[in-house]
Simulated assay, not measured.
Amino acid sequence: MLERTLRKDRTEVTFILPADIPPGTVSVVGDFNDRQPGVRTLTPRKDGKRAVTVELPSNSRHAFRYLAAGDYWFNDDTEDDLDGPNSRLHT
């Protein structure tokens, strides 16, 4: 799930997953972090979910996927827009 917070000159996008599905460490990998695994790792929140927030330019499009332990790649099933094998978000 994605949450978007509009700011004056940017959009904060929070990537959110359940605490244990999939198990282990998960990072979001996209064109906004040069597709580097481990740069944006989801961390536990008080509500029991895991999340990480990324600041992105407003009115932009970005491709991303999640990478979990064991080299398990997956898309965000709450986003309907796909770019090949990637999820696509719009800010």
Rank of each mutant, 00 (worst) to 15 (best):
K8G: 10
Q36Y: 04
V52H: 06
A51C: 02
R10E: 13
R65M: 07
V28E: 08
S58V: 05
D47E: 08
E12M: 13
G38S: 13
P22I: 07
A19G: 15
V29W: 04
V52I: 14
D80A: 06
A63C: 11
T91H: 04
D34P: 07
V29A: 03
A68N: 13
P85G: 01
R4A: 12
D9M: 02
F15N: 08
G38D: 10
D81A: 15
P85E: 11
H62I: 02
T43D: 06
L2E: 08
R4C: 03
L6C: 05
G38K: 13
T14H: 04
W73K: 14
G48R: 12
D34I: 03
R88G: 01
H90C: 02
H62Y: 00
P18T: 01
D83V: 06
A68H: 13
D83M: 01
D80V: 08
D34F: 08
G84T: 05
A68L: 07
D76H: 03
D31Y: 13
G70T: 01
V28H: 02
L42M: 12
P37M: 11
T25F: 03
I16N: 02
V39N: 12
W73Y: 14
A68T: 08
D71L: 14
G24V: 10
K49H: 05
R88C: 03
H62N: 09
N33C: 11
T53V: 09
H62G: 08
T25I: 09
R35F: 10
G24C: 11
Y66C: 00
G70L: 10
T11L: 01
T11W: 02
D31E: 14
D9R: 14
P57A: 08
R4N: 03
T53N: 08
I21D: 05
A69G: 14
L17S: 02
R65G: 07
D9E: 11
I16L: 05
F32T: 03
Y66H: 09
G30F: 09
D80T: 10
T43Q: 12
V54E: 01
L67E: 13
L89N: 05
I16F: 05
R50I: 08
D31G: 15
L67C: 07
V29R: 00
E79P: 03
G70P: 07
K8N: 02
F32W: 05
D83L: 08
T41S: 09
R65E: 08
R45L: 09
T78E: 08
V28A: 04
T41L: 06
R7N: 05
F15S: 04
